[in-house]
Design a protein around this nucleic acid. Structure first.
Lengths: 249, 249
DNA sequence: CGACGAATTGAACCTATTCAAAGGGTGTGG
DNA sequence: CCACACCCTTTGAATAGGTTCAATTCGTCG
């Protein structure tokens, strides 16, 4: 029972063509927005979505392009990024099953605010902005849910602004590790494993620093026994320890 | 016709008791959320709001307190801030007439995400979270508008994350000056005057830096003829020049 | 096993912070 | 109406935290 691959990460990817009707209904039903809708309505909504499969590093939508569609992650991991002229990109969020992205602004001639890149093989449900707008008009409770989600994201974003403004790289990375382990953590032998292929570069782009600095901090955390990490994966061992670093400065 | 005060700032503050019914209806009608509602509904909604007057530096709500109310700025300027243990606070936004803050999360036992402090004498309309929730349920288009607003703010917040992560202090301050002049700018003799009492400390808290660094950058901008500035006020002279600095690094 | 890409580590450099002191506008009280 | 005190602002010099560039090591996959 020897494991050939040292990387403990294992994302259960549904092959694009395996996003069956049943699976799609299940996913839509799990999405916070549609949770309470009767199956009849879910089935109708389902017909409005078209599914697409994407490979790792494939771009789903480009920041700046006309925002014609809205997407829901059916399976896999999608990175929301924003570019800079200096080439130093920023990783805003990593999305998973049931999460929404794309054109949330219901206005006319808007553009996508972020670039969305697949981090793993993923299945995505897409819908025209108009159709989605129609859903919102037809099912007011859905709008409330979307508002809730957006509001929560706004608060996380503002929290991140606070951290970028006031905390050290060390604290920010500690915080990010805790967030990711809460969102993607699975208990494994190596610790609370973050089920996302996560490079030092990704971490750096989330923390607003360089891969080298991220690496230094991670080495330090590893020496202190707070985490366990290898190439493209991270597991949290001592949550309390990281939490302490979080606001230490 | 000699001006006693050197500061060119002049915020037209409505005295709290001057927020008459007519004025309140006008303000509510101007707020993006209620813009298209018929007067009858506006009058009803108006009865749900209670008005309060606040003095400069007075706190409207504390981050962390139970989020029972939602507020709309009727008149004046309200700062949205977030604290850090290190004492270095972050200034998230400056709100003006018609803007919303407080408990946007429609969930149960939530707390205010930000502390709201009056920057000038202000008049604020407040409403119970429950009542507001009822408005949203009764008038679905209002929910859509609130969603739009929230979504726009989310994108601004993410843009700020990008800047904090990738740009220099100089670029960030240039960007903030442009944003503020777009939002609060009035053409005056001194240039495009930002109609907000704005200290170096405020600027620093918006840019995620120290008052000293902000001061250095501002001096530099002034020498370069890009801005005009004094104690607690700033006017933009050369927008194009600032724009160039914005993404220069 | 070999090769590629990721991660680590070191050293020089630089931006921004910190601490300290001096200068200047604003408003208050005599 | 002037003078004083307060606070904001400016500027300087030393320091620290983070970046950059480069070289090396290590892990993973073909």
């Amino acid at each position: 029972m020897v494991q050939r691959r040292k990387s403990p990460i294992e994302i259960e990817t549904t092959e694009p063509h395996l996003c069956s009707i049943d699976r799609r209904l299940e996913i839509l039903g799990q999405a916070p927005f549609f949770k309470d809708l009767p199956e009849k309505d879910l089935r109708y909504i389902n017909t409005l979505f078209k599914e697409i499969g994407v490979q790792p590093d494939e771009v789903v939508c480009f920041s700046g392009d006309p925002a014609e569609r809205l997407f829901i992650v059916a399976d896999g991991r999608i990175k929301l990024t924003r570019h800079t002229l200096s080439g130093r990109d920023v990783l805003l969020d990593i999305l998973s099953t049931g999460e929404i992205f794309g054109s949330l602004s219901l206005l006319g001639d808007q553009t996508y605010p972020d670039t969305a890149i697949a981090q793993t093989q993923s299945c995505i449900l897409q819908i025209g902005a108009d159709d989605f707008h129609r859903i919102l008009e037809k099912y007011p409770p859905v709008t409330l849910r979307v508002l809730e989600t957006t509001s929560t994201r706004l608060h996380s974003a503002q929290e991140r602004i606070r951290q970028l403004s006031a905390l050290s790289v060390e604290s920010r990375i500690a915080h990010i590790l805790l967030l990711l382990s809460k969102k993607f953590g699975k208990v494994e032998k190596v610790g609370m494993l973050i089920q996302v292929p996560l490079s030092r570069e990704d971490l750096a782009a989330m923390a607003g620093t360089t891969p080298e600095s991220a690496s230094r901090v991670m080495s330090q955390f590893q020496k202190a026994g707070l985490i366990n990490s290898g190439r493209q994966w991270v597991a949290v061992i001592d949550q309390a320890g990281l939490l302490q670093i979080t606001e230490s400065e």
